[in-house]
Write a protein that binds this DNA or RNA. Structure first.
Length: 524
RNA sequence: GGUGCUAUCGUCUAGUGGCCUAGGACAACGGCCUCUCACGCCGUAAACCCCGGUUCGAGUCCGGGUAGCACUACCA
């Protein structure tokens, strides 16, 4: 019988969710949806020392913003979203979904491994291990060295019991049998074989905080949560054989999930994994949302706050390491779900191409309506207008109309301001370069005459103005470019902007004339 | 150091032995459009890591190099 597809995204709440993690979540989601399966979210907080407050909420909010839906486990409460507040809900019958809340469950499985002889108790202190590493080059806690250490293999059983009962700190280690070829079938890379000699006796549980480590918790949870496919980053490939060995030790090999190790996201320049530092250095976000880290006080910029549209981020990320069946570049989430396939995922790491990300955002920005963009632009606009003495008030419909004039020339919503500022505030100074090139000796004379012409004009429509001004320029043989560019400088303050009659249309007769007069006084 | 993974234009990639004089996209460059700046459109340049082998035929399969990356914690 075909097993139900169940995948999980299992981040640890140690800070903002890295963009590579977002892609892993996305691929899991696409795979689940395509197969009509379940997408679970589990929090792997087994390292109490690395916990960062707010990280869990951040992760869930980021996935929610991007439209990566969670079927089971932890997620943003849909109800609270309507009410505008952020609360987390847990859904599903395989919980709890935070590993820190699953302590009792792990106890049972640690005991199972201990009883079956697949694991043992070790008392070596960090200092002792440190000393061993200094003493023996390339020291590894394994079959060759474990008999020299302080553990239940080398100590009498009653002494071990006394120490444990006394509350002595200990860890439980997995007993890796030496010299065995472990096969891992990876859905992306094929058969990977690693000899168990290079594996060390991994710590599975630490009594100090009564928590398992990743390796144990991950296997137990994936088994209990009936995960069918583990899709995760390539950095996990070296420990995959250990995980296979753990499934075997538990007797769960029959239902062991299939593995797929995704290629890494690399820094745009040079080599190596993409890191937070690269974003700071090269000036682009590495996180989906802005994050204020309460633990170290740092602030990380986010795609959302930089003006990215979620569908652009999704599309961009989807194509970093995966390619569709054809030449298609623009994908909606539904199209991705349809076309996604693990065997079209690349094997090699993908350098993060920020320029392409910008292009995607440009594409999706054009797809949004002027009204939507106006709503998004409103806060940006208000912020700019706060610093201006006499701004021109415009209602939202006018803002939408103005945006329609310029949206095809921007990549991001916040960039809109540089394109539309002159619609909201009259120019107070004039761009030097434009002046030099476009403001000629005759320009004051031309503008004075144009002013007379326009003052007498009743019909202020673009068509009427065009029908009035163009023939006039021609009859006087002033040259269209000469007159229109000077006119443009009066209205905009520089040689840029949309079609001139679109500008006069929005400005209106009174404001248009006023700006020409002002320019005439200032520029003579 | 050890182990593993990977290797096509600057970047993301297509390519599953003949369809490859190697295709698409971003970026770059040039042109067109035009009252300006953009957008858009059209075009140009740009790659199979190296060496062997298998085969009538290799970017594609195999071996060896080389290079890059990942892992090598009581982190995940």
């Amino acid at each position: 019988m075909e097993r139900r597809v169940r995948v999980r995204f299992a981040p640890s709440p140690t800070g903002a969710l890295h963009i590579g993690g977002v892609r892993t979540a996305l691929y899991n989601y696409l795979f689940a949806r395509q197969h009509g399966g379940d997408m679970l979210l589990r929090i792997e907080d087994t390292d109490s020392t690395r916990f960062v407050p707010g990280a869990e909420e951040y992760i869930l909010e980021a996935l929610d913003w991007l439209g990566i839906g969670i079927d089971e486990g932890l997620r943003m409460s849909q109800k609270s979203k309507v009410e505008g507040q952020k609360t987390i809900e847990a859904v599903g019958s395989h919980g709890p979904y935070r590993q820190s809340e699953r302590r009792e469950i792990y106890h049972q499985y640690v005991k199972q491994l201990l009883d079956s002889g697949h694991a043992y108790i070790a008392f070596d202190t960090p200092e002792e291990l440190e000393a061993k590493r200094a003493e023996i080059p390339n020291f590894q806690y394994d079959a060759r060295t474990r008999m020299q250490m302080r553990n239940s293999l080398t100590m009498p059983a009653d002494e071990v019991k006394v120490l444990v009962d006394k509350g002595e700190k200990y860890v439980v280690r997995f007993k890796v049998e030496p010299n065995e070829d472990v096969h891992v079938h990876d859905l992306i890379r094929g058969e990977v074989v690693i000899n168990s000699n290079i594996l060390d006796d991994k710590v599975l549980y630490k009594s100090a905080d009564d928590l398992p480590t990743y390796h144990l918790a991950n296997i137990v949870d994936d088994h209990l949560m009936e995960i069918s496919h583990v899709i995760r980053g390539e950095e996990w490939l070296p420990s995959a054989p250990l995980h296979v060995l753990l499934y075997r030790a538990f007797g769960w090999e029959e239902t062991m999930p299939q593995f797929a190790h995704l290629p890494l996201l690399l820094k745009p320049d040079g080599n190596g994994k993409l890191s937070k530092r690269d974003g700071d250095r090269l000036g682009f976000p590495v996180f989906p949302l802005e994050f204020h880290n309460q633990k170290d006080g740092t602030v990380s910029s986010g795609y959302r706050e930089s003006g990215y549209l979620p569908e652009a981020v999704i599309n961009f990320l989807a194509l970093l390491g995966w390619h569709g069946s054809g030449d298609q570049e623009m994908y909606t989430m539904d199209e991705l779900i349809k076309d996604f396939s693990l065997d079209r995922v690349s094997k090699s790491g993908a350098k993060f191409d920020y320029e392409k990300g910008k292009w995607f955002n440009h594409q999706y920005l054009q797809l949004r309506s002027n009204e939507e963009l106006a709503e998004m632009f409103k806060p940006v606009l208000e912020e700019h207008l706060r610093h201006i003495d006499i701004p021109i008030h415009r209602d939202i419909e006018e803002v939408a109309k103005i945006i329609g004039l310029v949206k095809d020339r921007v990549n991001f919503v916040p960039e809109l301001w540089e394109q539309v500022n002159f619609f909201f505030v009259a120019p107070t100074e004039y761009d030097e370069k434009s002046l030099k090139k476009r403001w000629k000796e005759d320009s004051p004379k031309h503008m004075t005459e144009l002013l007379d012409l326009l003052e007498a004009q009743e019909d202020w429509s673009a068509e009427a103005l065009d029908a009035l001004v163009m023939p006039w320029i021609e009859s006087k043989e002033y040259g269209v470019g000469i007159v229109m560019n000077a006119f443009r400088i009066c209205l905009v303050g520089a040689a840029r902007g949309p079609h001139i009659w679109a500008i006069t249309d929005v400005l209106g007769k009174e404001e248009t004339l006023k700006r020409v007069q002002t320019a005439l006084t200032k520029l003579g």
